[in-house]
Design a protein around this nucleic acid. Structure first.
Lengths: 222, 222
DNA sequence: CCGAGTGTCTACCACTTGGTAAGTGAAGCG
DNA sequence: CGCTTCACTTACCAAGTGGTAGACACTCGG
């Protein structure tokens, strides 16, 4: 019932906003991308159908295919937007942070905030890494600058003797897995008897930081 | 061509083995479960179709549905088998291990061996935790004894002062995420420039153990 | 006011999905 | 022998899947 047919705006009434005709298209595309990100990131790519996506938007599937030539192309666009969001978020978080360990803390805080407020972003990363190439390659490329900076940071900290010496790339993967896991693996947490709640999440973040700190920071030569 | 029609055994020739008629059914079901585990664990549940699964087995889809009333039921059966395998593998690994940290090492070694030899097992765990209930509940229930033992182990080590004191459940999740991530997240590893190879895997395991050891073991009061 | 272009819709399409109904052949049992 | 049961098949089906073709409405530059 009326999933299509312009239920959003009264028939014939086209809103006249600055930008005019072309702006409506971009606005629709924005909504498409937002809904697709939500669905891909939480339900998964295969489990999301264009029909159902269109239904949620009050639009027909063909409108989606007008803006993105195929489902795969839509995923690419979603990835681009999501990775841009991620980079921006982390840049923002790091802008205010001081040097050294503070930066790690800022990043972890940022991830936990994302896990609460925009779980679909982290979900998409997981989903795409599961899907493999070519989608995963795209994510990797988009995040490459961030990854490189992170690796350089770790290397510098190790050189300065503030972090335990080892392969920065491997440490990065370990830390990544740990953080993303603790922040997002709801089912695993439930399995060990941790129900999701705001209070519990704060505790979890604190414990995770302690875990990471022990794992990374060089033993002080007292 | 000839995906169906008993291409496996010459028409009319029914193998007369001890066990006879009823044993053939169990054998087919074994092959079904093995193929389903493989596909669910590597390609994913939704990305696996019964038709294609049947094709690989040289059997019709209806044969699968004869043994398992639905795709979901098949997943349940696969989960039961996989979790039993996992439990057996880890029990075996722990049987020979000594006390304390040696047990963690034995477990990590075990996970890495699985990642190389039976990646579909670990893949299924990831996949199911992604799918959520009711499948994830089943995994959780099946692995509950193991989880409980692990938590008790951690608690005991902390009590004995050999491990850094903190919430055993949270430490378990952290360690779980780290180990499974480093062992199985091929795409993430590729993203930081680590191509999968046997040599690299050994190095990865050693570094991971160092990472875990720093994270978990209590600082010796020297 | 006209023609081009943009954004969206209706109407299809070929194909695949999980699942049902009904049957077939062989083995086991009285 | 006939009857049942087991293992499996052929033949379908309704409901989706991603994707194409073509029309319609509406806006804007000329």
């Amino acid at each position: 019932m009326a999933t299509s047919g312009g239920a959003g705006t009264p028939a014939g009434t086209t809103i006249e906003r600055p930008g005019g005709r072309a702006a409506r298209g971009r606005e629709t595309d924005d909504r498409i991308l937002a809904a697709a990100l939500q669905s891909f990131g939480t339900k998964g790519y295969e489990a999301t159908s264009l029909d159902q996506l269109a239904g949620e938007l009050g639009v027909t599937k063909q409108t989606i295919l007008y803006h993105h030539s195929s489902k795969a192309a839509l995923l690419d666009a979603v990835i681009d937007r999501a990775t841009a969001d991620l980079t921006a978020t982390f840049d923002e978080a790091l802008r205010g942070a001081g040097p050294g360990w503070e930066r790690v803390e800022a990043l972890v805080r940022s991830v936990f905030r994302l896990a609460l407020r925009r779980p679909e972003l982290l979900g998409l990363v997981r989903e795409v890494s599961r899907l493999g190439a070519p989608a995963s390659t795209r994510v990797a490329e988009n995040l490459e600058p961030m990854v490189r900076r992170a690796r350089a940071f770790l290397a510098a900290e190790m050189d300065a003797g503030r972090m335990r010496r080892s392969d920065p790339a491997l440490v990065l993967v370990s830390a990544y897995s740990t953080v993303l896991g603790v922040a997002t693996e709801v089912e695993v947490l439930r399995a060990v008897g941790i129900e999701p709640s705001l209070r519990a999440t704060v505790v979890r973040r604190r414990e995770l930081l302690a875990f990471l700190r022990s794992a990374l920071v060089a033993p002080t030569p007292s």
